[in-house]
Amino acid sequence: MKKRLGTSKWTMVVLFILMFGIALSGGMYRNATAEESAKFKVTVPGNSTKEVVLDINEQGLPKKLIQPGMITISSGHGKGNLVYEGKKPAFIQFKFSNFPGKVEVRYRGPYDEKTGRILKPIKPGDSISIDFGVELPADVRKQAVVFIGEIQLMDWKTNKLIGTIPVKIINSKYETNTGATNNQNDNKESCH
């Protein structure tokens, strides 16, 4: 067997530092592509005051190549940022207004995909962690404003709206210098 790298103390130190640097670069890349996922924080009953904005042109190259048509709108890991502060337990249902494609809800608990309902009531003071995987068809991705929509949170027992999360997905690649958009041209392309 030929002598391999990293058997002497010095080369071990060099390899250690090299990998340390590569790994930290990985962390930097992760930060640079953090915009691939949109984060939200909302307390219900009430509406999110901050619009969730995501620019799909900020996606990293691997994402652009492999899966450009799926984005995440997430309440984050761990203790979720969807906080319920009502007085009675809530039976939350999600509705998606003006979304251009399918929305896949990832909730770690009993959830009915067909109706969009969380089957177990959320107690006052509880927070939940939830991800919305949003499909963006190829034609809508080629617009400066991909879509403006809203995630509506209903109480499916009372059928009352208890909160909303406004969502705006853009594609800065299609924005002109004057700020106008070239939607029309892109829409024409998408018709073919």
Binding site: L5, G6, M12, L15, L18, G21, A23, G27
Partner: peptide, 14 residues
């Protein structure tokens, strides 16, 4: 070609 030990500990340190 390479001893994996310093590499894996370098990654772990990061």
């Amino acid at each position: 070609y390479v001893n994996p030990v310093p590499l894996r500990y370098g990654f772990f340190a990061a």
